[in-house]
Write a protein that binds this DNA or RNA. Structure first.
Lengths: 206, 206
DNA sequence: TGCACGCTGCGACTAAAGTCACTCGCCGGG
DNA sequence: CCCGGCGAGTGACTTTAGTCGCAGCGTGCA
């Protein structure tokens, strides 16, 4: 009866499973950070979500039994709680409020995916980049004398994967924002000098 | 106690609700066809899904109470069964298996969204177009002497919205496929002459 | 009959995205 | 100390996407 959970550990960069693999069960993050992503034949990647402690991964195939629609890897060393498909199903049937909770979680993920679709089909790389910079500035930005200091979560390559583009465009667009006086770039540390100006980029139709 | 459902009717093109509206409840399609879509400031649209009879719409905000993430309009005259948010919630709590069913439905939608993201970030307009042609040929295509006859579900404009692009590109790419001898275009009726060739477009990395 | 409107086909153009091929600087291991 | 690898910057180029403006065509309706 007690949820039969198994503890698992993954090292940085390790793959939990790949797109297309049959679904074994639900993964809950105890410690660390996971990256859900799609990869293309030509080596490109598109990150769908990054989940931290308390988050879960692969909720959906648990319910329809179909294979995983995307791959998941560990961004950093992580500890995972694993619950098999059947155990979780019966747990949901016994506790309907848990099922509703799951619906809320899946709903939130759905919203984020819709957001990604919106950005991919309506926004330029420049706008998407500005978008993450604004988000970073608003959440983990440190107010300094001359602006807000933020720091990129990973390499340009990784950021490119999140934006659905390539490294060079990230680099170039960052430089362009700097040339326009909106930000100051020093490697991975960025100072946002003109947040309103940066925000204005988000809804410029031209 | 019995699920308090209301019948509603919508004419062709009518809007059921817009992105950002507060969520009232769940919509189930009795007859007709609904289109879930996002629209941008500059008038562009991206179709997220088209649902037919038996399908439902706006499942997710029912559970988290947040506003609708996208807009929904009727593609053709439609009859809808509407269930208010609270009625449906309590119904789910009383019948856990219904909640699980909903999870499966939402899961399927999630899968489709992931598919859209994949196409948007990895595939060209040409490939996406070829993709829908192949899908149409495989589902509702009529085998004729010289090929498979299919017919576009709507105008080029509408198809463009589904592909996340503009009318002209649909027109041009169709013409190009014709020039290459893969299809024959006569207005909205298309004859697929070389299905393997068309399929080959889908995974050409260059 | 003919006019208006919606759908489609182009041509020419601009802009954005992506590719290739390199250079440079930094850091860590041999 | 030198080397190798990785991340980053950059110029030049190709390809794809998107924009603008307009012409042709059919259908329906006055």
């Amino acid at each position: 009866m007690g949820a039969h959970a198994v503890r698992k550990s993954y090292g940085q960069g390790e793959l939990l499973f790949s797109e297309g693999d049959p679904c074994k069960g639900l993964h809950i993050i105890v410690r660390g950070k996971l990256r859900i992503f799609k990869s293309s034949a030509s080596g490109r990647e598109q990150v769908l979500a990054v989940e931290g402690p308390g988050g879960s991964v692969a909720e959906l195939p648990v319910f329809d039994g179909a294979p995983y629609p995307a791959s998941v890897s560990a961004v950093e060393d992580s500890q995972i709680l694993f619950i098999s498909r059947n155990d979780f199903r019966s747990f949901c049937l016994a506790h309907p409020e848990v099922a509703l909770k799951m619906l809320a979680v899946v709903g939130a993920r759905l919203r984020r995916l819709v957001g990604i679709i919106e950005e991919l089909s309506f926004a330029t790389v420049r706008q998407r980049l500005a978008s993450v910079l604004v988000r970073l500035a608003q959440t983990e930005g440190k107010r300094m004398g001359d602006g807000i200091e933020i720091q990129l979560p990973g390499t340009h390559q990784e950021l490119a994967h999140q934006l659905g583009t390539v490294r060079e465009l990230v680099s170039r667009n960052l430089m362009r924002l700097q040339a326009e006086g909106l930000v100051e770039v020093e490697a991975r540390n960025i100072t946002v000098l003109d947040l309103p100006g940066l925000t204005a980029i988000l809804d410029s139709s031209s």
